[in-house]
Simulated scan of single mutants.
Amino acid sequence: VNAVSVWLKLKIRRHYKIHEMSFTHGVADAPLKVTGDAPNETGTEVSFMPSTDTFTMTEFDYGTLEHRLRELAFLNSGVRILLTDKRHSDIKQEELRYDGGLQAFVAYLDRAKKSLVDKPVAIHGEKDGITVEVAMWWNDSYHENVLCFTNNIPQRDGGTHMAGFRAALTRQVVSYADSSGITKREKVTLQGEDCREGLTAVLSVKVPDPKFSS
């Protein structure tokens, strides 16, 4: 952000002190300095003005910000995000906090649809420092809606975790249908698309050193 801003100001509350620093066109105006006390607060505040030399449009869209911050609130259960727009006389403010995590996320995505199961299916696992979370819910539509995230960053085109999720889901559903005699009784052969029909899912992985190819 600093490199593409006309100015940027940092206010850091840490170790019971307030530290501040400012930049102009990416260059520090002065070294970081202590400007006050912060006995009961921690955190970092960043203020900046996008540069018109880099961006053709520097006006922020409230709807875009709300959508992205809502995703982050769902992906980080319990985190409170406050979005405030003071650009106009009619001030907008939205508080975003969801303690239900990915289960609350899929419930939000399917809020206007008829579910086929009582509540979302949630799975959580961790191995070799990599955390995987997924929540799934089926509705009575024919549309598949699967959202993928790596370290809170959306992957619109999926990735290896999406491919692995789809393969595992198909394998488990087909295995159950075969072992229970459903496929033989109904004389059907299930494909991956059949298992994902009406599926809404959110898949989130947290990895220490991600590799992005898109």
Score class of each variant (00 low, 15 high):
residue 68 R to N: 08
residue 68 R to Q: 07
residue 68 R to I: 01
residue 69 L to E: 02
residue 70 R to S: 10
residue 70 R to Y: 06
residue 72 L to A: 10
residue 73 A to L: 03
residue 73 A to R: 02
residue 75 L to I: 11
residue 75 L to E: 07
residue 76 N to G: 02
residue 77 S to Y: 08
residue 77 S to M: 10
residue 78 G to N: 13
residue 79 V to L: 11
residue 79 V to A: 13
residue 79 V to N: 08
residue 80 R to C: 04
residue 80 R to E: 15
residue 80 R to P: 09
residue 82 L to H: 08
residue 82 L to K: 06
residue 83 L to V: 10
residue 85 D to C: 07
residue 88 H to L: 05
residue 89 S to K: 11
residue 91 I to L: 07
residue 93 Q to Y: 06
residue 93 Q to L: 03
residue 94 E to N: 14
residue 94 E to S: 12
residue 95 E to C: 06
residue 96 L to I: 11
residue 97 R to W: 05
residue 98 Y to G: 01
residue 101 G to D: 07
residue 101 G to W: 03
residue 102 L to A: 02
residue 102 L to W: 09
residue 103 Q to L: 00
residue 106 V to D: 04
residue 106 V to F: 07
residue 107 A to G: 05
residue 109 L to R: 05
residue 109 L to P: 01
residue 110 D to W: 03
residue 110 D to T: 15
residue 110 D to F: 00
residue 111 R to M: 04
residue 112 A to M: 04
residue 114 K to Q: 14
residue 115 S to W: 13
residue 115 S to R: 10
residue 115 S to E: 11
residue 116 L to W: 09
residue 117 V to N: 01
residue 117 V to T: 14
residue 118 D to H: 13
residue 120 P to H: 10
residue 120 P to K: 06
residue 120 P to L: 01
residue 122 A to G: 04
residue 122 A to V: 14
residue 124 H to W: 05
residue 125 G to Q: 04
residue 126 E to C: 13
residue 127 K to N: 12
residue 127 K to Q: 15
residue 128 D to M: 15
residue 129 G to F: 11
residue 129 G to P: 11
residue 130 I to E: 12
residue 132 V to T: 12
residue 134 V to P: 03
residue 134 V to T: 11
residue 134 V to R: 02
residue 135 A to N: 09
residue 136 M to C: 15
residue 136 M to K: 05
residue 136 M to W: 03
residue 137 W to H: 10
residue 137 W to P: 00
residue 138 W to S: 02
residue 138 W to L: 03
residue 140 D to T: 10
residue 142 Y to C: 00
residue 142 Y to E: 08
residue 142 Y to M: 01
residue 144 E to L: 00
residue 145 N to V: 09
residue 145 N to E: 13
residue 145 N to M: 01
residue 145 N to Y: 11
residue 148 C to R: 04
residue 149 F to S: 06
residue 149 F to Y: 14
residue 151 N to K: 06
residue 151 N to Y: 14
residue 152 N to V: 05
residue 153 I to L: 13
residue 154 P to L: 05
